[in-house]
Write a protein that binds this DNA or RNA. Structure first.
Lengths: 152, 152
DNA sequence: ATTTAGTCTACTAAACTAATAGACAATGCT
DNA sequence: AGCATTGTCTATTAGTTTAGTAGACTAAAT
């Protein structure tokens, strides 16, 4: 399950992507526009900044803005920063691999084999989708149809 | 992330599948074989029984056994019983749909559009894979190669 | 210097996870 | 009938995670 934190983070990112190139946006503005508790949002944006996904400016005229163009920021990256690895088991994570203590032979663990498929499918979607893609998909949905109706 | 509970549950299911048709297996045997705390395993098996995935017999010669042949028990079903919905967001779950309170228009929520893809990909894998498939995959892995090397 | 706006550390209530404990109920055997 | 065996059910708990809140601090602009 995606946490509230990731959900808030993704919402904030879409706001910042829409406003990309127009200078910094205030935390409070994002919080108000998306109905996110302001203090909580501060922590979230800070984490994203420490990862280089966002940049910020202090003082008057300050605020947050994207560290890269929206078509270069991957949804998977945002979620990994805020929620941790995408993998359903640490032993199938590529970015945060950890052996299972109890596991006798990792290569022949049935659960692992299946969960690796799940992790790969999830990562494929989330790492191929950028924030720009997400906005585009919303645009298409607003026009009454989803991209998938065409691309399949 | 899969919980310990689901992991234990899946391990127990593979033991019971291997022994399918050979009469009931003791909770304690499963616990010992897989290194699962016995009392915890009781609760897990009970939940699976209440869903009809397992059956049990009390008294001497009793124990647990599969409610259906291993090729008719889907991994997705087991995980849903023990961990809840597969979907990363309640609003994209098919088996446990719940609207997001804050969501203005569900059809044009970018996060939802992407997360629906993730849920569909995950559900496709876990609902198409049976316990028998999982055992088969392990067999193939033991023989030094994975089914995927052939089927793709 | 003052105001504006992000930064950093600490704290907390509620929920969830991973168990543990123990009384109870059904079944098979002698 | 009585006893051992094995699953059932309810309660409790320590530890962790989640979703915030509070407040002092720091940098930039005017």
């Amino acid at each position: 399950m995606l946490t509230q934190k990731s959900k808030y983070g993704l919402k904030a990112m879409t706001v910042l992507a829409k406003e990309y190139g127009q200078g910094p946006i205030l935390i409070s503005d994002i919080a108000r526009r998306e109905g996110i508790p302001r203090k909580f949002l501060e922590l979230i944006l800070l984490e994203l900044k420490n990862e280089g996904i966002l940049q910020s400016k202090k003082g008057k005229g300050g605020g947050y803005f994207l560290g890269h163009p929206p078509n270069q920021i991957r949804v998977g990256h945002i979620i990994r920063v805020l929620d941790g690895p995408l993998a359903p088991l640490p032993c199938v994570s590529k970015t945060a691999y950890m052996r299972c203590r109890e596991c006798r032979d990792e290569r022949t663990c049935g659960i692992r084999i299946i969960m690796k498929e799940v992790r790969d499918a999830t990562a494929k979607i989330l790492d191929e989708t950028t924030v720009a893609d997400m906005l585009r998909r919303v645009e298409l949905a607003v026009n009454g149809r989803d991209a998938l109706s065409f691309s399949i």
